[in-house]
């Protein structure tokens, strides 16, 4: 398991300290850790457990119960593909296959290079644009016909490669 750096640990401590005295602070803490780090590392669960008088296994239970929490580090870029009914009927599965191929990330996993995470989500409420996907918060509609989103992924890959070569 990857070791967290001091910066991340400090952030977790700060979040835990801030919510410690609230009623039912566990979920609040988890939300903030998820927002800050993109996932819930073991160290966070241990610290939250200590502050709330529970055990890491119990906090893990909360993390695993809610779909929005994850224990796996997210990639640098997060891709959500809608698997709601409308999107599914309009070929969301094909879309997922295409993203998997382009990024190397499996569904609900992160690509080996750490660049992309691919999450299958429930209905995003944009059924008129089905099938829909989101890259880093930006919506792409009619994604099977419209090539914007594949171009965007390719652009990211190109840029990251360039950045990697320069560094």
């Amino acid at each position: 398991m990857e070791k967290l750096n001091g910066e991340a640990l400090r952030k977790i401590d700060e979040i835990v300290a801030r919510h410690k005295d609230q009623a039912g602070p566990c979920i609040e803490m988890l939300h903030e850790v998820q927002n800050e780090l993109g996932y819930i590392p073991y160290e966070a669960m241990e610290k939250i457990a200590e502050a709330t008088g529970s055990s890491p296994a119990e906090v893990y239970g909360v993390v695993m119960f809610y779909a929005q929490f994850t224990t796996e580090p997210k990639g640098k870029h997060v891709i959500n593909v809608c698997l709601g009914t409308a999107c599914y009927v309009k070929g969301a599965q094909q879309l997922i296959d295409r993203v998997e191929k382009l990024t190397g990330a499996a569904v609900n996993k992160t690509s080996p290079d750490g660049l992309f995470s691919l999450d299958a989500t429930r209905c995003l409420g944009a059924c008129g644009l089905a099938p829909v996907c989101i890259i880093d918060g930006k919506y792409y509609g009619n994604a099977l016909v419209n090539n914007d989103f594949t171009n965007e992924i390719r652009r990211i890959v190109r840029e990251e490669k360039k950045a990697g070569a320069n560094a």
């Binding site: 055990s55 893990y60 119960f65």
Partner: peptide, 10 residues
């Protein structure tokens, strides 16, 4: 007083 076990998933 340890709490090794817990529920997971739903």
């Amino acid at each position: 007083g340890i709490g090794v076990l817990g529920l997971m998933n739903r």
